[in-house]
């Protein structure tokens, strides 16, 4: 795990995330959101979870971010600008970050270097999905179906 790569990705991700949270234009914020997700996916690659990184890229950048862009384009009416950060929200966010950071620094047991582990192959993921995690998998499938139908119904009622 190279530290230079880590620092680079961290800076990229956090800058993009901050931009997503504060930029005025909705479209700009969405695009920086996508960049932040690329950063997170790069973290996953760095951590040796290539499959999850790829899934993140496909699902988030390929589907969710594109979906958001479509939504923005479809509902052009009052979308455009939104206020940036307001004080109470920023204060609360900084406070949460301070608290979490303090807690993380305080906990000595997490200051460890990465151990050596077996490479995570897609085969292993697939086996785990089909054995120990088969029920969650089914539930997620059901949930996705429900979400799909729900989304359709929501949009269709508008049409009527």
């Amino acid at each position: 795990m190279s530290s230079a790569a880590f620092v680079l990705i961290a800076i990229l991700t956090l800058a993009a995330a901050l931009a997503a949270a504060t930029l005025q234009k909705l479209m700009h914020a969405t695009l920086s959101f996508a960049v932040a997700l690329v950063g997170v996916a790069a973290f996953f690659f760095l951590l040796g979870a290539e499959f999850v990184g790829l899934v993140l890229v496909f699902v988030y950048i390929g589907a969710v971010a594109v979906l958001i862009v479509f939504t923005i384009l479809l509902t052009r009416r009052d979308v455009g600008k939104d206020r940036g950060a307001n004080w109470s929200g920023a204060l609360l966010a900084v406070a949460v970050f301070g608290g979490l950071g303090w807690a993380v620094f305080k906990t000595q047991s997490v200051a460890i270097a990465a151990p050596h582990i077996r490479a995570l192959t897609v085969k292993r993921i697939g086996e785990a999905l089909m054995t120990s995690y088969v029920w969650p998998l089914q539930c997620v499938g059901l949930l996705l179906t429900a979400a799909l139908i729900g989304a359709l119904v929501l949009v269709m009622e508008e049409k009527r």
């Binding site: 609360l92 966010a93 406070a95 949460v96 608290g99 979490l100 303090w102 807690a103």
Partner: peptide, 9 residues
């Protein structure tokens, strides 16, 4: 979020 802070405190 405030609850989270309280928990941390």
């Amino acid at each position: 979020a405030i609850g989270l802070l309280a928990l941390l405190l």
